[in-house]
């Protein structure tokens, strides 16, 4: 009853609303689940990561429950789907896409919480992580030096970064990132 009285009183005075909680963020469309026989998966175009880009809006950046339902859980249960959108790579791509500003800085610094988390998603063991970062850093230096880098959108930069990383964890460091 008290809350109703307060609410009516506030409305009666045309008070701009206060809230003590954020609004629940609206779910983005579920990522398209596809199967690809192609060796190279592009999570942006094949799985719709670009479409569920987390807007950098003041009012409310979005959340997605979905990707973690079938992303990280697949990780923990060791159900690896290398060529589908249910694998860890898609989760890593999603993480890179959203936190790209941190990822590029930490790569430049050679360390940081976000790139550690990124490699943890990919199942890369701790001992190998610094080597992978150093290797990615070397290639990223070239990508960031290109004339077109500054003009690219954040999502396009994230894609470029993802492919640099993917080359390392699927190639030279595949053994160290076993769970992929």
């Amino acid at each position: 009853m008290d809350k109703l009285k307060i609410a009516l009183a506030a409305l009666a005075f045309a008070l701009p609303v206060q809230s003590f909680a954020e609004t629940a963020k609206e779910k983005k469309p579920e990522l398209e689940k596809v199967s690809k026989s192609d060796e190279k998966l592009n999570p942006w175009t094949d799985c719709g990561i670009g479409a569920m880009l987390f807007d950098e809006t003041k009012w409310a950046a979005v959340t997605s429950n979905i990707i973690w339902d079938w992303g990280i859980t697949a990780t923990t249960s060791a159900v690896s789907s290398k060529h589908t959108c249910e694998g860890k790579k898609v989760v890593a791509a999603f993480f890179i896409n959203q936190t790209y500003a941190n990822i590029e800085e930490e790569t430049a610094n050679g360390n940081g919480a976000h790139i550690t988390a990124m490699l943890n998603i990919l199942g890369c063991n701790s001992a190998s992580q610094q080597n992978i970062i150093d290797s990615v850093r070397a290639d990223f230096s070239k990508a960031a030096a290109s004339a077109s880098y500054a003009e690219k959108t954040k999502s396009a930069k994230a894609q470029d970064y993802y492919f640099i990383l993917d080359e390392k964890v699927s190639g030279r460091y595949a053994q160290q990132c076993q769970a992929i």
Binding site: F54, E56, T57, A61, S64, W68, F95, Q98, A101, A117
Partner: peptide, 16 residues
């Protein structure tokens, strides 16, 4: 809703 913490970290500390 459940999310990984980085999403809140991003929304609150980085964006807002």
């Amino acid at each position: 809703s459940h999310d990984k913490f980085f999403q809140h970290n991003h929304n609150y500390a980085e964006t807002e």
